[in-house]
């Protein structure tokens, strides 16, 4: 059994800070855990901190995009924060621009975005 990335609840926000070199199974487990936690806690926002990640390949990139989409369906907005410049340059060259994923430079800006998003009523889709 592989390690799991902890999902922390702060008010109505779930915070995930990825601090280890991710194996693919951990990526899939995290997606499951987050989806369940959103429903269990009624969270309105999710922040995924990837500042410690040295690479984001297509598998992790896809997880971020899928997680953002799942969260939205479950009523929570996702913000990915802390992407390193070298990771951003590599991701785009790889062919992944993470369209549909809200990003912010750091945790503080990500939380600020979620707070503002929560002050306005959710858009109907």
């Amino acid at each position: 059994m592989s390690d799991r990335v902890p999902v922390l609840k702060i008010g109505d926000i779930l915070l995930v800070s990825i601090q280890v070199d991710l194996e693919d199974q951990m990526v899939l487990d995290l997606q499951d855990d987050l989806s369940q936690q959103i429903v269990a806690t009624g969270a309105r926002g999710v922040v995924i901190d990837i500042s410690a990640l040295e690479i984001v390949d297509s598998f992790v990139g896809r997880m971020l995009a899928t997680t953002a989409a799942i969260s939205r369906v479950l009523g929570a907005e996702t913000v990915v924060v802390g992407m390193r410049p070298a990771v951003a340059m590599t991701l785009v060259e790889l062919g992944l621009s993470l369209g549909g994923v809200r990003t912010a430079l750091n945790l503080e800006l990500g939380l600020g975005y979620l707070r503002r998003a929560q002050d306005t009523p959710p858009a109907r889709r």
Binding site: E54, I55, D57, P85, A86, V87, T90, L94
Partner: peptide, 16 residues
Amino acid sequence: LVNQTKLVTAASELGR
């Protein structure tokens, strides 16, 4: 650092 990141990312794709 950018080239390290690119090479390691390529290695991750190919290894998978």
